[in-house]
Design a protein around this nucleic acid. Structure first.
Lengths: 205, 205
DNA sequence: TTAACGTTTGTCCAAACGGTCAAAAATTGC
DNA sequence: GCAATTTTTGACCGTTTGGACAAACGTTAA
């Protein structure tokens, strides 16, 4: 078994700077992808020189890996909260709400994640096959129970979850397209609220 | 007004080679994105030398632009076919079918497109605001008519279309994740058929 | 045969990029 | 105040990359 690579003790400055770099890297990576981003761009965005940045992260890969692994937790949190003991409609509704809010408030994170998956998830495939699959298996089972009990319209719980992911994240990942199509009038901030209402209707018919 | 840049007359070899390069470029670009792909990779995939490739396309940008513009037509075709005179349920069902089939049969095209949008659609934004918006406006109006006539469940026609896009394309763009979650048993080719059935149920409830 | 034209390649270049290093500057602990 | 340690930087290096170019090769038709 691998030890979890004893976390190096860090100074206050190190913690702060790594945080600052993470924020800058999120901005840059989410806009240009891994290969499209340069260390210089990230260093600029973080207000420091390239060698200085490389004092805190040993290379570009490590910045990206740190970012995306931290992101996975945030990303799965809403699904984790889905409670077997709760009311099905309420649970699904608030899951959709939370996911739409994440698309509205953290579009960069969503795009970073989408980018990684699009490229074949080279860095997080094990997490998808392990942690994510287990979580989805668990929640799909709950949803299946709800459906069998007649408390939710019958359908395939896995594809049900996929559909919620796809539709909610669409508003972050394909934001440009959504705004282009909605145009001036309806493309404002209200689009997230409209989307949320539409999706509740769709999934809780 | 701009003239449409009088198309240069091409020899048979030029047409064939440009086609060959397009196919190779689709393979490479859809896997690594624009910045992540090199002209050398594309040339290799097309079985020719880099200078040879650059004899047919003046630079990397032109290869990509040609690809994505050609792609747009294919991509919008299914929506174009939606017929106001047809039966609403039949029309929607076959639209979903066609879109799922495209995800299954042309995942590279889907990913290339997703990549472009994710980066902010730098090369096709005008098309999204023009041609695409017009098409969607037209079809959303048809759907709205169907809804008002009680022939389709009432909802927001724009978000209805977005949801179909998001869910169907999800099976191409997030394929790795879908397969990771479904696992060995259900992750086989049958997943597209399962998805199609699920989505018909979802959208035509 | 040869001139004209289309195609292919080896070689080369400048810029961009990821990353190193040693030395300077700032901070911390005593 | 001073030594030890941490942080920051300018200069530098090797590699990759997009692209240019001229020369060679092939094809066609008078």
């Amino acid at each position: 078994m691998d030890k979890p690579a004893a976390r190096p003790k860090r100074t206050r400055i190190q913690r702060e700077k790594r945080e600052l770099i993470g924020e800058a890297a999120l901005e840059v990576f989410s806009q240009h992808g891994f290969r499209g981003s340069t260390i210089d761009q990230i260093a600029d965005a973080a207000g420091m020189s390239k060698p200085n940045l490389l004092y805190y992260f040993k290379n570009k890969e490590e910045i990206f890996a740190t970012l995306i692994h931290r992101l996975m937790e945030t990303w799965l949190a809403p699904l984790r909260e889905m409670d077997a003991a709760g009311d099905p409609h309420t649970e699904i509704r608030s899951y959709i709400r939370r996911k739409i809010e994440m698309s509205r408030d953290f579009p960069r994170e969503s795009r970073l994640f989408a980018n990684e998956i699009l490229q074949g998830a080279p860095r997080i495939l094990p997490l998808l096959e392990g942690e994510l699959k287990e979580l989805v298996d668990e929640k799909a089972a709950i949803i299946a129970t709800w459906m069998r009990a007649g408390r939710l319209k019958m359908s395939d719980p896995y594809h049900f979850i996929f559909a919620i992911w796809a539709t909610t994240q669409h508003y972050a990942d394909f934001d440009v397209q959504v705004r282009a199509v909605l145009g001036e009038n309806r493309g404002g901030e209200g689009r997230f609220e409209d989307a949320a209402r539409f999706l509740e209707g769709l999934f809780l018919a």
